[in-house]
Design a binder for these strands. Structure first.
Lengths: 317, 317
DNA sequence: TTCAAGACTGCAAACAGTTGCACTAAACCT
DNA sequence: AGGTTTAGTGCAACTGTTTGCAGTCTTGAA
């Protein structure tokens, strides 16, 4: 029922190898034969079977993409860009979600290994050792995690955090809270060390917190008690939750306290007040990651971040 | 370099067929042999090659998922749920994005066809004829589109729209605008016909509009001029954009006009005012769609929607 | 003790392609 | 004219697994 290369060969009076070549090495076959085979193939509705092709060539033309949580608004633009880049080069993209479980990462990479030419891992939480083990099974590139020997694309969140704190300092804030995320992520430590280096502001760390709206909401009281006039939040969701929490405590943003988030998710732009935030080049990262994978280059690239000033920051009273 | 079934066979002193069976039909092989093969396989790090398996069995254990726009906040929860359901049954999921181009749908299904056991198509925009043609190539289930002969999962957005308009009527609104989406989608017409049936309210249609925040923003002036006190928007993004646009025109929500959205995306909950909306069971739809696909049942299921009343609706002045 | 029935296991032919090698004919040199 | 290159095509082996068929070896029953 499914039409194979042999059917096309028979119908166009050539050997299967010729049919094969008209698809995978067109220049090796006579123009006349080629068009004949092509039209016959078209008539029959033949499409090469990629799985079978993969068996001999070893290349599947598939890529894997593993993220912590598909529904976290940080990821969809990255996934979309990765898909577009893959599609452009005729690759297909498996997408998987670890549900924030580090163990699932290894599991998924293993499961993908025979079926993809490479995988991109976003902000992996597995140990270096585990990642090195995986690197032997399948090429991969990691996003937002420094890893020796692997292709890497980093978003310079440290610089962004610095810009954010400098922005607050410039407005006159002298004491700012860092509402941190979960302990132990690369992003988390980047933000902290960068923020601490800004001269003229006292940084007080409030956390760790869940990297969600609820996490931010729950941190509101501690932020109030910290006696700060400015806040840098781990990400936009935390910032939005925090703003709501502060509101419930009778503090308004930006009048009583300025808040800046990180990521620049759409909800931040839609929020009232519109969120000042550090824009992360997620789409660029996704695109770049698949390009690196396909071209098999192992480089480490750092993407710029920038500060987007909106309505959640102002001079302190 | 990659370890195959033959390596395992050699190392454990049995024939390849026995190794094959220990994985795909364990009951057919002696317990002792089985454990021996299993331990050898483990030591060697053997994993069956799914592509090769697919070649003989015809089943790839892969599924495709095609959506209009991965970055549209409506889809990620659906994708996530679909992924979870697939994963649970040891299926992998290709995800693809048509970028709102109807032509890409057919293209993508074709490309997937040999590589998946089925595909789920979300809100397809292709013609019935095109979809029937595709149905011959690969089993699929469609979400949010009525299609004879194909497995279908529908979200009862019509009923949701009716509830929304009834809610507005109940608050005392007599003239409400339907800020519609793009022309010709199934959802769009469902909403309209249902909304029109609510007695006691005059419905005026404003549209079509792009199904985005910008679309809603751009429709603000026309809504003001329509002389309505209540609005049902095509989706939450449109509602949020509209609220902002109305704000710029000096109208506040819900004091001057009530707005209800559709979808219940997270941004709506985060918005100020918090958006009253029709919650769509996207996760359930995603999960169900892959279950139907895997079990190869062709049924048409309609999922309930419900009204979530928050702060963007109130009695008219 | 013999025979039939199981339980295991091996053999080999698929599955749908790719590719190194050999072969034929035509085209090009000198 | 004879030799050499070149373009185009066919042959057959190979990729990693599955599976119908057949063979061997135990067991249990008569």
């Amino acid at each position: 029922m499914t039409v194979t290369i042999r059917d096309v060969a028979r119908a166009s009076g050539v050997h299967v190898s010729t049919v094969s070549r008209t698809f995978s090495a067109p220049h090796m076959v006579n123009a006349a034969t080629r068009t004949r085979v092509l039209t016959v193939a078209e008539e029959l509705g033949y499409r090469p079977n990629r799985a079978a092709r993969a068996l001999t060539t070893g290349r599947t033309h598939n890529l894997g993409l593993i993220v912590a949580d598909i529904a976290n608004p940080f990821f969809p633009p990255l996934i979309k860009a990765a898909h577009a880049a893959a599609r452009q080069r005729d690759y297909h993209l498996f997408v998987a979600d670890t549900d924030e479980e580090p163990a699932a990462e290894e599991e998924l990479v293993q499961a993908f290994s025979k079926q993809v030419d490479g995988v991109v891992l976003c902000s992996p939480r597995s140990s270096n050792k585990a990642l090195e083990r995986l690197a032997e099974r399948v090429p991969f590139v990691v996003i937002n995690r420094r890893l020796r020997g692997a292709a890497t694309v980093l978003m310079d969140v440290g610089h962004g955090a610095k810009l954010a704190v400098e922005h607050l300092a410039g407005l006159g804030h002298r004491r700012v809270a860092l509402v941190s995320g979960p302990a132990g992520s690369w992003t988390s430590s980047e933000i902290r060390t960068a923020a601490e280096q800004v001269p003229g502001v006292d940084l007080v760390v409030v956390g760790p917190n869940a990297p969600t709206e609820r996490g931010g909401f729950a941190a509101a009281a501690r932020v109030r008690d910290a006696g700060v006039t400015g806040v840098l939040a781990y990400n936009d969701l935390v910032a939005i939750g925090l703003i709501e929490g502060l509101g419930d405590l009778g503090l308004s943003v930006p009048e009583d306290v300025s808040v800046v988030g990180i990521d620049d998710i759409v909800s931040g732009r839609l929020n009232r007040p519109k969120l000042t935030t550090v824009a992360m080049p997620t789409a660029a990262a996704g695109r770049l990651a698949v390009d690196l994978l396909i071209q098999e280059v192992t480089a480490t690239t750092t993407l710029e971040t920038r500060l987007v000033i909106r309505d959640s920051t102002a001079a302190p009273r």
